[in-house]
């Protein structure tokens, strides 16, 4: 726990909000390499125990609320099997 005397909220924390992302996994395209799980900066993913059609373990979103839509998983996935979208964008589209 940080010492409360030195702990303050950033001045612009009410203006700058970190983006929220929603992660999508195209399970049957995944080859279970684990790159996204290993390098996601927010620990959103783990490899699931379930098998996909090809016998690999696709990632599972275990902490959806932590995703900041940073795009890393989309870029690092060699199989084009995972991506994130900005939450606001999705809400906008919902009827």
């Amino acid at each position: 726990m940080p010492d409360p005397r030195y702990w303050r909220k950033p001045f612009d924390s009410d203006k700058v909000k970190s983006p929220k992302g929603v992660v999508y996994v195209i399970k049957d395209r995944c080859k279970g390499c684990g790159f996204c799980v290993e390098f996601c900066p927010r620990g959103v993913l783990v490899l699931s125990v379930e098998f996909n059609k090809k016998g690999y373990h696709p990632p599972e979103v275990v902490h959806p609320d932590r995703c900041v839509n940073c795009d890393l998983c989309e870029r690092i996935c060699p199989e084009f099997a995972i991506y994130s979208l900005n939450q606001d964008e999705i809400i906008e589209l919902a009827p």
């Binding site: 080859k31 279970g32 390499c33 690999y56 870029r75 690092i76 996935c77 060699p78 199989e79 084009f80």
Partner: peptide, 9 residues
């Protein structure tokens, strides 16, 4: 490409 191959990235 194989699983864990880097080309796709």
């Amino acid at each position: 490409w194989c699983s864990r191959c880097g080309i796709g990235i």
